[in-house]
């Protein structure tokens, strides 16, 4: 049975006189991939910034409901609590890895909350005490598991900044996964990828959905990614939602075609 993971109601974001997002409502279902698409400037990234606490929405309710029944109103949480407590993780349009740390270290930073607790704020870590060793082993094991999924095991000790572009994208996604999110927000993960890297990205996202059951919210321009993997697509144009449905429904919606192809007066 489908369960609503994120319910966005009447989200509006104004910057002075500009309304970037205008009364948008949609639902992202648990364990599904929901894509948000639209022409440039449609307000997609603004929606993400509201979800992850970068912006305080002007109007609207952002309800996250986890499988264990715990509920969070994201618009009321501070930015760092959205990641730590509500378990919403995100990536950015431009890659933001820690370039001078290894692939493995990047994945360990994402697990630092549990590591810190186990290491008594590094006092135990410095002396290599047993419980810290144990926690660190568990963290490395988890990192290894994700590196296998993303095909990055061989480059575990590379500096992240030296990886090829496609591998950096995949690393960014599994780093977000290492914080055990219930909702993963990806901002244009396929941007700048070649067709082969794009296909690898598709595989990774489908694998994460199947194996981890994580809900994925995706902003993407690359329609080969969007149409292939999305369960459900929300289309924005000039800050308003103009369509919502499966890939097939959206592709045949005259308003979507008008927005993308610039058709004259629909009505």
């Amino acid at each position: 049975m489908k369960r609503a993971l994120l319910t966005v109601e009447h989200l509006t974001m104004r910057f002075g006189g500009l309304t970037a997002v205008d009364d948008v409502s949609f639902t992202a279902w648990d364990g599904e991939i929901t894509a948000i698409i639209g022409p440039n400037g449609a307000g997609k990234t603004t929606v993400f910034n509201c979800l992850t606490g970068f912006y305080q929405p002007t109007v609207g309710r952002l309800l996250l409901e986890r499988a264990d029944g715990e509920r969070f109103l994201l618009e009321r949480l501070e930015a760092y609590r959205i990641g730590r407590d509500a378990k919403v993780a995100r990536t950015f349009q431009n890659i933001r890895l820690f370039p001078r740390m290894t692939v493995l270290e990047n994945l360990l930073v994402a697990q630092h909350t549990s590591l810190m607790r186990a290491s008594w704020y590094s006092v135990a870590g410095l002396f290599g005490l047993a419980n810290y060793r144990h926690a660190e082993d568990a963290a490395i094991e988890k990192a290894r598991h994700y590196m296998e999924l993303a095909n990055l095991v061989e480059v575990a000790d590379w500096q992240a900044g030296n990886l090829p572009y496609g591998a950096q994208r995949r690393l960014e996604i599994i780093r977000a996964m290492c914080s055990d999110p219930v909702l993963l927000c990806l901002d244009e993960p396929a941007a700048g990828l070649n067709p082969r890297e794009s296909a690898e990205l598709n595989d990774l996202l489908l694998l994460l959905r199947a194996e981890k059951g994580v809900g994925i919210l995706l902003i993407e321009h690359d329609m080969s990614v969007v149409m292939r993997i999305s369960d459900h697509i929300v289309v924005l144009d000039y800050g308003k939602k103009i369509s919502d449905g499966t890939a097939e429904q959206v592709q045949n919606d005259p308003r979507v075609i008008a927005a993308y192809l610039g058709e004259e007066e629909v009505a």
């Binding site: 990641g83 933001r96 820690f98 001078r100 740390m101 360990l108 930073v109 870590g125 410095l126």
Partner: peptide, 28 residues
């Protein structure tokens, strides 16, 4: 050794490279 191998040292280097991202991953 502290900076290179402990969790706290890792956190320190992460903040040095990208504070916003470190905060998003839950680093104080």
């Amino acid at each position: 050794h502290f900076i290179n191998t402990t969790s706290l040292g890792r956190q320190q280097r992460a903040c040095e490279q990208d504070k916003t991202m470190a905060a998003l991953l839950g680093v104080n």
